[in-house]
Design a protein around this nucleic acid. Structure first.
Lengths: 194, 194, 194, 194
DNA sequence: CATGAATGAGAATTCATTCAT
DNA sequence: AATGAATGAATTCTCATTCAT
């Protein structure tokens, strides 16, 4: 079962969700057709399972931001950088899935709901952090949260797409961009050469 | 032929690229299977034509930014706002296609090349504008350009996805976010209520 | 389409409904898989069409019995014999279908409804004729009607099954049996040697 | 093994022979796939076993009619009624199987042979009783025997199918019908209310 | 130019049966 | 004896594409 999930990730990575046949998955997992349907009732069921996994990781991230006792201060460039790095690592881990989001939400309502909840929770978590900062909010925190998610998600996709996968330098720059966008008052503290 | 292209947009809008059957397109266009293959050698050919159209519009935008005689100053909030509005209008017009990008690039190399060129041209145009501004660039202009494209593209998608389509207020906020991100020095001039 | 219906009859005749593959039908019809699904949405749809055909023939028989102006007098051995012959001819024509009834009603509600209506209409038509006869009805006409249908249907099946297909002599005997069962008072008029 | 046979009857009752999966049977029997194949070499083997059981019951009935010392006089309405009741009880007990006859004989030659032998034995037993009666036989006893079997078997099926399961009143009427058909001379002795 | 019936390759899914434990 | 995970042959159905009219 784990083998099938991993194989699915590999297959989706190589050929995209639609390009992936059940046959491809079981070939990679070195098992048979029948076995696949022993564990998953169909292709969507498999991708639903993968989505639950990925979404729960992202949700864990959001929760870590907001839960009591958390001391994450996004307005600190250093802490924001770490958070960005965390997101980036997650994206890389589930890249095939994140890349297929657009597809998936159109195919299966269950998956769409999962992802919608995840996005909204993440957005709200960021919004809360942004609104927390001293001084009057100058942009709608909900918009800011969504913008950050949009930026981070798509930036990874596009950089891969144009053949320049995200590296540490890119993450430094992206962090600075996000930092400036969210906390314009806190110009000091940025790493000089970002 | 125009009818077929429009029909394809409608169909892709409703059912996504993969969900769209040649049947659907010819039904909407009120024509026949045979006619479809008279104008397009296959389904990919059709989507290639649509992509050429959309990409050329975007490229027109990029070119307008960079070509000699252009006076567009993104560092002005008002001008940036207009530019954002322009992009948003374009996105809305070609929403079905933009939404399907992720799919499309995986399907057809021709489409992928088109889009890759378009993205890079757009990124470079923005980068040039960012680099132009007086004072030392603090973030890599290429990263900034890509980040802006990523943000704008995905923001539209996500807002639609969560059921809150982008409106003027959202664009105001997004403009402010982009403005701060790209031109941290130019804090004055922002619209107060964004 | 006619070709497919006929082919289906042939195939069901040879292998039974469950034993019949779509492939078998199209092979006999000398056409292709795709063509089959052009005319029928699936196997059940095909059998539904066949059932409509057969059921309408039987219903035509029932209606001929009851409609105004009909002078069919089942209590006359000769007329009963003709009616039995008519039923027998119909059974032979749609034998594969009649043989598969038991199967079919378990598979598709549409088919089951068709057949149920047909059976009830036929039973009621017979019951009406039986009740019409002078003298007090000694058996429940509805039971008598159903018994006649049961006898005629199954008799054909069983005789084929044991390798002695129904012939004229058998039909003579069956007619006498039915005649005696329904009209015990009318003993005269029977053909002597039945 | 008994558990498996009973489970199979239950399953066939609910879903018909073709609708019954080995899975269903073992689920009902609360055992496993492996165990099933320990006792039966395949699905047909199971149904063969069930058929042997049912057929031997029917054969017992036939034999009781013909064996030396038997005093069963079908020409007595009362005795015929008892015999009909016996058949009806048997039918009800093995209803799932009797209902599936048509299917079964098409599937497995062994089953078909069983059933064929049973039907012929039964027919001959009835024929013998019919021929035994004083006076010249007016219908072919073999035809009469088969007709009676056909009537009784299908009558039960059809009544269940139209939602009016056979009850005592129906059996009274059926008895009268059969009685008149077989023994037209013996009009007296019928129960008045049939 | 336009049509739409016909095609068949390709994909998903089911389920009887096996076999290592 | 009993188990149940694993298998893969067999089947249904979809849909892009062709081609005769």
């Amino acid at each position: 079962m784990r083998r099938l999930l991993d194989a699915a990730m590999t297959a989706i990575d190589e050929r995209g969700y639609h390009g992936t046949r059940v046959q491809d998955v079981v070939d990679i997992a070195n098992t048979s057709h029948g076995t696949f349907y022993l564990y998953f009732s169909n292709k969507e069921d498999l991708v639903r399972a993968l989505t639950v996994e990925a979404a729960s990781q992202v949700t864990k991230m959001s929760r870590a931001m907001t839960e009591a006792g958390s001391s994450l201060r996004l307005e600190s460039w250093e802490e924001l950088r770490k958070w960005v790095a965390g997101y980036s690592a997650l994206w890389s881990q589930y890249a095939p899935l994140f890349r297929s989001w657009t597809d998936l939400v159109a195919i299966d309502d269950g998956v769409a709901d999962q992802i919608r909840r995840m996005v909204l929770a993440h957005r709200d978590a960021i919004a809360e952090r942004v609104a927390d900062v001293d001084g009057p909010p100058v942009v709608d925190p909900a918009v800011a949260g969504m913008a950050v998610i949009a930026l981070l998600d798509r930036f990874h996709f596009l950089r891969e797409f144009v053949g320049e996968p995200v590296d540490d330098a890119a993450l430094d720059s992206v962090t600075t961009i996000v930092h400036r966008a969210l906390f314009p008052a806190a110009l000091s503290g940025e790493r000089g050469k970002a």
